[in-house]
Design a protein around this nucleic acid. Structure first.
Lengths: 225, 225, 225, 225
DNA sequence: TATGAATGAGTTTTCATTCAT
DNA sequence: TATGAATGAAAACTCATTCAT
């Protein structure tokens, strides 16, 4: 409920709250810049300037660039899980199409999440500390577990543990379709050719279709057993 | 100013066949080294030495490192499509589980394909020429189209065009589950913790399950219509 | 991914004065090394070591190697113009021979200027930014204009504007005779042959003779009109 | 009187004449390409293709790229000297302005000579063999000597030996003004600014003025003695 | 003679990170 | 806490030249 005003920080962040707020400012700025640039092009110096801080100051909040962006990923992913939880809590049960729609709708509100997830595997995970890795993966396991349980509640045929596995496949589809739907500039130009139009993909559309099928398939398989 | 050539390691590839063979040698070596190292660590100098050629010679066959690896990806992907085609041709019709099993089995024979596909989106596509992009995407469209048609033949309920779309989702799942199942060294250590065991994923197992569900869902959806 | 800084050689230049001083240190070292080596052989790494800085630090002061050496040229050229101005200011009027002598004497004090001017056209100017080019050429125009006016004061027969043009020819002669008088090692050996002795040229001597003639010719031409 | 047809050489050059002709073809092509590109950009492969030969064939005629271009310089310079000789032979005596005009006119017919002379000092001479250096410098000494004698014939006041020295200064002015009048692309843009217009130089105009003054000054100095 | 496949030396510049102030 | 000057590792690619054919 707090309204966040974007400030320029000239004073020092002494209190715990002030530190937390500044940390969030950094994450905000990082996510904002990441919307426009690839990770490699997004320099720490630029990020610092965006916030009105010095480069060194960033390192008082995050030990490495990768660690910083891991926090961005986690925050964005968390928000998605939260949105999903809220949406699912409104249903007593749900059919596959509607479920796919809810997940997709929750995604559309976080447009950078897909690209952040791509970043996660290729750039971040190979370059973080084990502590960061443990913390992030624990977060992921927790969130996927909870959402999985929620799915099991909604889809009667899902057995215990199948919900979490299903979420794994959901994330996989999100990553895979996300990459297919996000061409580089050169590839985008290539795909303008009429014979390649089938490779031009709209993420929400395609994800929703694939998730629908996945959910339907999961339900069916268990009914059959 | 003056550059002197010293050693002479190889026979010269003067005929068209010899050139094609040498090109293949390069791709072989690249794929072999990629099995052991990440793309960034895999230096052109190392690759050249592996083959017994000079660095410069590689550039007689491929204009850039990215272009070279795009060819590796394409060859590996092509082999998968070929293997799939052969496997599917043996069936007159097929149930979703068996279909998932065929695709997965065809994949297991090409163990590097998944990592190569990851490379494709993040490293290769942003750094290739438009001509290379067009050629690769045209290849992809052609192969996915053909395999899609084969799927439509096998799954009676699939309408025209749905086969290709389904293949898109197959590839997406492959990429997504592939990344989830291929942790970096640090992440692998993190996942050794018992509470994170659910995030340790076996690619063939998980892919087969997900594909099964996907195929079942696709069939069901169309039956319902 | 991770870069670690190891040694710490120098005090940090935080104030504006300290930065200007360090910039000058860099230019000093560059000019010193250029006295011994050709531009292409003079590596930035060597230059940095000479000053006791890291390579990267040089790039905090100059965006490129060319830009750095353009500053060296400008500083050296400026010093020549200053020396000339001082020498000329002592005269109320001057005869062509004495004028040639003053310019030549001012040059002898800056022994690297000639080679730097050679560098300017062939290496620097094709590789600088337009901003650098504008700044340098504006500097040149200003200095040549002023010195030209001084010449017009000293040589009664020079009309307005002719002084600057004359300076252009002076610089041209300096560059041309400079190159002729500065043979490469191999050419120097060739010129040791007795039949080629006429091509062994002493810069101050020859320049002074040529400038004398040029000044005399310019005076005469105008008297004749 | 021979009309040179530009041919594509598919047959071998067996006779001495055929070799000489092919050598000339190479020089022609080199000069032609040099009109459009800088030396560094002008690759041996491109040159070979221009003539319709293979790279290796060039090395049957010239041991190095530098040696090849030294021959281009020499041929162009020779043509200038020849043109000058012919022009001067028409006069019994000549005034400084007319002499400057003759030299300049002879130059205008060889538009690449100036750039070739720039190349000579900075790129060629540091990278040729001593034999090449001796041969070229001997050629230069001979030509300058002869032309100097011709000048001494035309300018009564010139003492023996002064003609050759004068030619040295002529060449120096040519090189110096040539460089000043031949800006790089970036510098050319910079010089479009109105305040820098005085640095935009027309080579023939400026050279003629400078040579006039030089000749006049040389005559005067000797009259005075 | 002619070919063109093969060779391999060579260096600026970037930018995440550190640490003196 | 905050600053920003200083650090230094890192690797693809070119192209003159050679020489097997």
């Amino acid at each position: 409920m707090t309204v966040t005003a974007r400030k320029r920080h000239t004073k020092r962040a002494r209190s715990v709250e002030a530190r937390a707020e500044r940390r969030d400012d950094i994450l905000d700025a990082a996510e904002r810049l990441f919307a426009e640039q690839r990770f490699a092009e997004l320099h720490m110096a630029r990020l610092a300037k965006e916030i009105g801080l010095a480069k060194g100051t960033l390192y008082l909040y995050f030990p490495t660039k990768e660690s910083l962006f891991l926090a961005v990923v986690q925050r964005s992913l968390d928000a998605w899980f939260v949105a999903i939880a809220e949406r699912l809590s409104r249903h007593a049960f749900i059919d596959p199409d509607a479920l796919a729609r809810e997940l997709t709708d929750a995604l559309v509100e976080r447009p950078h999440l897909t690209r952040l997830l791509s970043l996660l595997h290729t750039v971040l995970e190979p370059n973080i500390t084990e502590d960061d890795a443990v913390a992030f993966k624990a977060f992921l396991a927790r969130k996927m577990g909870r959402t999985g349980i929620e799915l099991e509640r909604l889809i009667a045929t899902l057995e215990p543990g199948q919900g979490a596995r299903l979420m794994l496949h959901v994330l996989a589809l999100l990553v895979g379709i996300g990459q297919a739907s996000d061409p580089s500039i050169v590839v985008k130009r290539a795909l303008e050719r009429p014979d390649l139009q089938h490779l031009r993909i709209d993420l929400p559309t395609e994800l929703c279709i694939a998730l629908s099928a996945l959910f339907r398939g999961f339900s069916a398989s268990l009914q059959a057993q």
